[in-house]
């Protein structure tokens, strides 16, 4: 008697909460666009320095770690690629696999996951702390719209920096793979580069970059939704920070699959 309605109720409540959060995220996106376009007319302009601050934090400071990880992924892909093609004696065809999987999949995915862990969580923690310290209330009573002041700069910076980082990761991962391939298969780096370019079409690059722009939006919205829904003091901030990383990464992976399903077949 007691167990099943309880379970049903819990599932129902969790679903309703999830849908409410998605709705909140969507309205945030709409409101952000509103302030971006009409902010100046409403005397609430989105400030360029704030966007640069965020871009610095989200993009430039992530460069070292993106470089290291992208290079590592490139080498790893080269090793696996050569291994999987060896039974067919087709090792030299490895470039196609590397080029396509890096540009279409690995660079956007790794960059997205990295930025989610670095900046999505930071965003959630910052907004959560501001919420608890009444800083968000303070903004509102000062006549400063919190979405315009806090969310829009982060969203814009993400939308510019995540694709930019992805492009960089493309380059570094292909270079890493190239270095390994040229050593292993006695193929010169120039030939490797040429074959990579042969197998890549512009469509592959835009496929990867548009995914990374979607990831950028997801990371920001998940971070903001979680940060804004904080309750319960410092412990609550910790909870939403973790939650935002898990949600952002899940959203990225699932969206990636849906995007590929819709676009590639």
């Amino acid at each position: 008697m007691s167990a099943s309605p309880n379970l049903l109720e819990r599932v129902g409540r969790a679903t309703a909460r999830g849908i409410a959060e998605i709705g909140f995220g969507a309205s945030l996106l709409g409101e952000s666009l509103f302030w971006l376009v009409l902010g100046r007319a409403r005397r609430q302009p989105v400030r360029l320095p704030a966007i640069f601050d965020q871009a610095m934090e989200i993009g430039i400071r992530a460069l070292p770690i993106v470089t290291v990880l992208a290079g590592t992924i490139g080498v790893m892909l080269a090793i696996q690629g050569i291994y999987s093609l060896r039974p067919f004696g087709a090792e030299s065809r490895v470039t196609t696999g590397i080029a396509l999987s890096v540009v279409r999949e690995f660079a956007p995915l790794i960059t997205g996951i990295l930025v989610a862990g670095r900046s999505g969580s930071a965003l959630a923690a910052r907004l959560g702390t501001m919420h608890i310290n009444q800083e968000v209330d303070a903004l509102r009573v000062m006549g400063i719209n919190p979405v315009r002041f806090l969310v829009v700069p982060a969203l814009l910076a993400m939308l510019v920096m995540v694709p930019a980082l992805t492009l960089w990761a493309d380059f570094v991962a292909l270079l890493g793979a190239g270095l390994y391939v040229s050593g292993e298969l006695s193929m010169s780096l120039a030939v490797y580069a040429e074959r990579c370019l042969e197998s890549l079409k512009l469509n592959d690059l835009t496929h990867g970059l548009s995914k990374s722009a979607i990831f950028a939006m997801l990371i920001t919205l998940v971070g903001v939704v979680n940060g804004a829904s904080v309750s319960g003091g410092a412990e609550g901030v910790g909870r939403v920070t973790t939650r935002s990383v898990v949600h952002a990464i899940s959203a990225i992976v699932v969206t990636d699959m849906i995007f590929v399903f819709a676009v590639t077949r």
């Binding site: 910052r126 702390t129 310290n133 009444q134 209330d137 303070a138 009573v141 000062m142």
Partner: peptide, 13 residues
């Protein structure tokens, strides 16, 4: 209108 919040609510950054 001006508001002084209990904890100050100064922006920590």
């Amino acid at each position: 209108m001006g508001v002084a919040f209990q904890g100050g609510a100064l922006f920590s950054s």
